[in-house]
Structures are given as C-alpha cells and as structure tokens.
Amino acid sequence: MKTFIQHFVHIHAQKVLIDGVLRYEETATALDFPAFIRNVYKHFEMQYPKFYKMDDLSKLAFVGAELLNLKKSDVYKSEDKGIVLMNRSSSLYTDALHQASIADKNNYFPSPAVFVYTLPNIAIGELCIRHQISGENYFFVQEHFNPAMLTNYVSLLFRQKHIQQCICGWVELNADNYELFLYSVEQNSENAVKIVDKSPIFASLNLEVDHILNDTDNIKKLYKL
C-alpha cells in the first residue's frame, strides 16, 4: 500500500523549515531553547495558552505539529488518526529537573507540573488534545534516528487499517541540543506536498507524480535536509 508525505517540518540550529523551505531563522546568537521556541511560536502567531505550561519536549513537538498545516487536509475521523514519534533522550531533560527537585532533603519540593512531563509520550498526549487524534499512538526511543523502524511500523499501521493519517517523526531534545523532523502521512496524495523544485535533494527522492512516497529512503533523505 502506498502512502504519501503531506508536509514536513524541520526545526534545529535556530532554523525552521517547512516542506524544505527556510521559513524562520533566529538572528540572535546562541539563544537558549525556551527563548527560541517562544519566538517561533510568536512569529507564526500561534494561539494556545497551554503552550506555556508544557515542558520543552512538548513545546518542540507542539510547534512542529502546528507547522504541518494539518487543518487544511483534515478529513479523517479522530480515531483514524495516529501519531508515531521517536527520539534518543526520551524525557530525560525534564527528568533531570524533577530529580533536582528531590536532591536536597531540606528543600524537597517535587513539582506535579514537572513530574507529569517525565514521560516522552506526554508530548503525544498534547498533540492528541490539540489536533483531536484518538487513534494509535507510539513513542519509540532509539539511540539514533531509525528511519527503517519508523517507516516500516507506520506502513504496517496503514496496511492493517489501524490509521488513515499519521503524524510521524523525530523529536529530540536534551540539555545541549534540539532537533525536530516531523511529517504527516496519508493514503491519498491529494493533500500531499508537490515537489516542483527539482534541486538535487528533491530530485533524488522517490516520487509519484510529484508526490513524495512514504518510504525509508525518502525519510532518510528528508531527515538530512
């Protein structure tokens, strides 16, 4: 069964790319992640007060998913939509904050609002609430981005009819770095991004009438964009 990439978003090194096109670049040097992601949120005029309550991993996933432009092509029932995410550091960045709050026995105040984010799939929960997604949801943790595992499993979910649309990708955040590569996949190509730009990177993709097939090779190439 063929599935197609609707849109894809990259966020890393103070840059935001949508469908491979640079759409935002932070000019201030070495801005910390919270300040950077807040700027992106404001730049794209996002409106979701709960954003400010999320931990950094969820903020990254949230902003990435907003930029996928899901509204435009949203014809699926909530239960037919899924999310499959992957990263390296799970929720360890937030875990460290929680651990720090219990390190000193004389100043022992673990925070409920921090603790609830000490699971990577909370980011999925946030996206499910925002985009009303109630189908299959997975968080895989791998030492390195594993496009084969991701693509093979997402394809299985489509083949076995568990889902008809899916948000997928790599959402990594740790103390030193952040890297998001998020994409949406669906069975129909109608809403899929069209590749008219034939620059070398796009020219090497497996396309079907200008649409990007969701396969391991393509995902590997798009990730590196």
């Binding site: 007060p49 105040f109 673990p110 925070s111 409920p112 609002a113 609830v116």
Partner: peptide, 17 residues
C-alpha cells in the same frame, strides 16, 4: 484563569513551599 487539576496540585506545593 482556566486552571486544571495539575495546577491545583501545584498550588498545594506553592502553599507548602
């Protein structure tokens, strides 16, 4: 203010702290 159940727990911590 639109607070929820986690906020309520956070307020309990605030009072204690």
């Amino acid at each position: 203010l639109g607070l929820d159940s986690i906020d309520a727990l956070e307020l309990i911590v605030l009072l204690e702290k």
